[in-house]
């Protein structure tokens, strides 16, 4: 029972993954891509969680938070880049 549900959930997640990839490729603006990438990251978290259930191993749970953090940093960086044109400023306010 739970097995089927998990498979089903995986399928859903995979479909949404594909959808997001479509958005990444399509765009049209960079912001759209970034949004989709961020969503992909979040989705990856879900998929990893599901996979670790399937594999019945909690070794992969560490990855979840990691992906979360990375996705966050990535998004922040992208946002900054979009807004300021640089990711890391040498000195602000000048």
């Amino acid at each position: 029972m739970i097995d089927i549900m998990i498979r089903l959930a995986l399928v859903f997640c995979s479909i949404s993954m594909l959808g997001l990839i479509y958005r990444v490729i399509k765009g049209p603006s960079v912001a759209d891509r970034v949004i989709a990438l961020d969503a992909i990251g979040v989705n990856l978290v879900a998929i990893t969680a599901l996979i670790s259930i399937v594999l019945n191993s909690h070794a992969f749970l560490e990855i979840i938070l990691l992906i979360g953090i990375l996705a966050f940093i990535g998004t922040v960086a992208f946002a900054k880049y979009l807004e300021k044109g640089v990711i890391i400023e040498r000195e602000r306010n000048h």
Binding site: T48, I51, L55, S57, F60, E62, I63, L66, L70
Partner: peptide, 17 residues
């Protein structure tokens, strides 16, 4: 992840980023 290498997956993810 699928081939049961959690450490690798962790590292690869960060490195790739």
């Amino acid at each position: 992840v699928l081939f049961r290498a959690p450490d690798l997956a962790l590292t690869q993810l960060v490195i790739e980023t």
